[in-house]
């Protein structure tokens, strides 16, 4: 698994891929399926690494921002896909959903081809982003409603 030189390219490309990967991680498998279907037939590709379940050790920091320590593991699933045009897409998502990892790897590969960017964003990413934003807004409003507003009682001598 050495043929990945083109992926360690410029910071902008990396940031764009990370954004899409984060979206895939937060999406449901169903959303990724629907989104990919909306793009039309996927270009020719082959599986470089079939979805594989494993562990990643998560870490915390002492006091929240100090030296790291090992907190505990999480299950993750990773996959890699190569488009016939050469781009390799990777994925590593929390959980044990092989199909989700496969789709996320394919999406990462497509995201490295300029001609797919617009469609990926409009047809796949946008609906997921909207759903996440909607849920986020509700959560924030519900959380904010539990904020304590202190008031000082008027004291006798005043």
């Amino acid at each position: 698994m050495n043929a990945h030189s083109q992926s360690s390219a410029d910071p902008d490309t990396i940031r764009r891929r990370q954004t899409l990967m984060k979206l895939c991680a937060d999406a449901t498998t169903r959303e990724l399926e629907t989104g990919l279907a909306a793009l039309g037939p996927a270009p020719q590709h082959q599986i470089v690494r079939a979805p594989e379940i494993g562990l990643v050790m998560l870490r915390g920091r002492m006091g929240g921002d100090g030296a790291p320590f090992n907190l505990g593991e999480a299950t993750v699933t990773r996959a890699a896909i190569r488009l016939s045009s050469g781009e390799i897409g990777f994925s590593c998502v929390l959980g044990r959903d092989g199909e989700k990892a496969r789709l996320a790897a394919l999406i990462d590969a497509l995201g490295q081809r300029d001609e797919f960017l617009e469609a990926l964003d409009a047809r796949l990413a946008a609906p997921i982003r909207e759903r996440l934003a909607r849920e986020g807004t509700v959560k924030i409003a519900q959380t904010a409603a539990t904020r304590v507003n202190f008031f000082t009682l008027v004291r006798g001598e005043d």
Binding site: M1, H4, S7, S8, I14, R17, Q18, M21, K22, A25, D26, V56, L58, A74, V76, R78, A80, F90, S91, C92, V93, L94, G95
Partner: peptide, 15 residues
């Protein structure tokens, strides 16, 4: 998770 294959930190989700 910094994945060596990809060469950068991969966002894996939220806990």
């Amino acid at each position: 998770f910094f994945a060596e294959d990809a060469g950068f930190a991969i966002p894996m989700g939220r806990i």
